[in-house]
């Protein structure tokens, strides 16, 4: 199960592989459809990636730590509900956004507490919480949707700073902060240590519980931020909100080269993974492949990339065996 390649090499290789795949996909779609390589379509792809990007950044940390959160889509949904309710009550959009982010943080604390202090494996605990959060959204909505919300938040998010859309800035900022935390602070080292082996990390004096708990809180907070953009874009909260996001995020993060065994995290890979998924979904629809095939493509991509890595790993093993 342990990857035989040196860590640094894999990360770089995977990121290059994804970058190449993105470029190849863009080139092929641009040839196949005259409408693919347009500014409008690029904006469409990017706009449809915002929530998934933010949630995937949090998921990268969780997976690198040896955790996972299958309830994260419904966490975004609950945060979006909070924002939506406040907007209908004509609360100032920046306050509503702040409340939504805080709601995400609070739910991250709940999830973290159940996993860390209940000492339940993350996948099982978040599976249970998924049911609880779903019920909570239903009860909060009471059957009615929040639809056609006031556009106040949407207008606020249309602000550009030096010509750059605020979504891009927020994502870059989140990326930057997480990158710094991972590379330049003990937090990153400790997180990866916990991901490698919780037991060893604890023996080395890492406060494993604090690391795990705070990673869930960060992930929840990012889901809260995603909720702000969700409401800004869709102005709608329905009962099934966010139900596909968690699995999509896991797929994108793994595609990006972060190891689910923990101990390895590639933020750049995650971003490329999300973009590749969205480019393929968009491009295939543009060349006329029915949307029902999108799930198949996602799965095939995941299996394909990991198989390539698995095969090359086996080859290298053989070579190593031969030279010894």
């Amino acid at each position: 199960m342990i990857n035989v390649l040196p860590r640094g090499a894999v990360v770089e290789k995977r990121e290059l592989l994804l970058l190449a795949a993105c470029v190849l996909a863009i080139a092929l779609f641009a040839i196949a459809s005259p409408f693919f390589a347009t500014a409008d379509n690029a904006v469409t792809i990017l706009r449809n990636s915002v929530e998934l990007l933010l949630i995937s950044l949090g998921m990268s940390l969780l997976l690198a730590m040896g955790g996972v959160d299958v309830s994260i889509g419904t966490v975004m949904g609950l945060a979006a509900f909070v924002i939506g309710r406040l907007l209908t009550a004509a609360v100032d959009p920046s306050l509503a956004a702040l409340a939504g982010i805080l709601a995400g943080t609070a739910l991250g604390m709940v999830t973290g507490a159940v996993v860390v202090f209940g000492r339940i494996p993350a996948i099982v605990a978040t599976l249970g919480l998924l049911g609880v959060y779903k019920a909570a959204i239903y009860l909060a909505l009471g059957g009615a949707w929040l639809s056609g919300l006031p556009p106040t938040l949407t207008e606020m998010l249309q602000v550009r700073i030096v010509g750059v859309p605020i979504a891009v800035i927020v994502i870059a900022l989140s990326y930057g902060v997480i990158w710094l935390a991972m590379r330049r602070t003990p937090f990153g080292l400790h997180l990866l240590a916990v991901g490698n082996s919780e037991e060893k990390a604890r023996l080395q004096g890492v406060n494993t519980k604090l690391i795990q708990f705070s990673t869930f809180v960060i992930s929840g907070t990012l889901a809260g931020v995603a909720a702000v953009f969700y409401i800004g874009t869709y102005r709608n909260v329905e009962m099934t909100i966010g139900s596909t996001l968690a699995l999509d995020a896991i797929a994108a993060v793994v595609l990006g080269g972060t190891s689910i065994l923990g101990g390895k995290c590639s933020l750049l890979g995650t971003v490329l993974g999300v973009l590749l998924l969205r480019i393929l979904q968009n491009g295939l629809l543009l060349v006329g492949v029915p949307s029902l095939w999108q799930a198949v493509v996602t799965g095939a991509l995941l299996i394909g990339v990991l198989s390539i890595e698995g095969l090359s790993g086996r080859l290298q093993l053989k070579f190593a065996g031969a030279t010894q």
Partner: peptide, 26 residues
């Protein structure tokens, strides 16, 4: 996928979940 290509089961079967259930629909 799990034993030969050494893909972690969670990920390998997540991928085949997408493929199998997606194909059944498509």
């Amino acid at each position: 996928l799990v034993t030969r290509l050494r893909i972690l089961p969670l990920i390998a079967t997540l991928g085949t979940l997408f493929i199998y259930s997606g194909s059944a629909l498509a």
